[in-house]
């Protein structure tokens, strides 16, 4: 599979995530869309990692090129896990206070 198939897959996932963030009002679904976008980036990183690894293999059979990209994906997952923890806690707080998770009620910035 050529690499730009993966690029387009990633772009498509990312833009679906964007559209979700823009159209939905449920804070939890928006949150899930953000996870979707993070994963779109992840798959891109893995695809590039593979691409560079294959290029390097042609000259060196024992190369480790591309490991870093996969480690980055790993770190993104770590950060995403932390983010979800805090984000869901905030949503719970919000629900507890205004009994809704509709972000349209969160328009305090206007005032």
């Amino acid at each position: 599979m050529p690499v730009n198939y993966y690029i387009f897959l990633s772009v498509a996932l990312f833009c679906i995530g964007i559209a979700g963030v823009l159209t939905r009002r449920n804070a939890i679904i928006i949150f899930m869309c953000i996870e979707l976008m993070l994963n779109a980036v992840n798959i891109l990183l893995v695809a590039f990692s593979k691409m560079h690894h294959l290029r390097a293999l042609a000259t060196d059979a024992a190369t480790t090129v591309g490991t870093e990209a996969q480690l980055f994906v790993f770190f993104i997952m770590v950060v995403a896990a932390a983010e979800v923890t805090v984000g869901l806690a905030i949503i719970v707080m919000m629900y507890r206070n205004i009994h809704s998770v509709d972000i349209n009620f969160l328009n305090r910035l206007k005032h």
């Binding site: 690499v3 690029i7 772009v11 833009c15 559209a19 691409m51």
Partner: peptide, 23 residues
């Protein structure tokens, strides 16, 4: 807006140098 962003990104990336690099 999401669709437009996708269009623009695809347009920007479709001619990249590495586009036929197989995986």
């Amino acid at each position: 807006a999401g669709g437009a962003l996708m269009l623009v990104l695809v347009a920007a990336l479709k001619d990249t140098e590495t586009r036929y690099r197989s995986l």
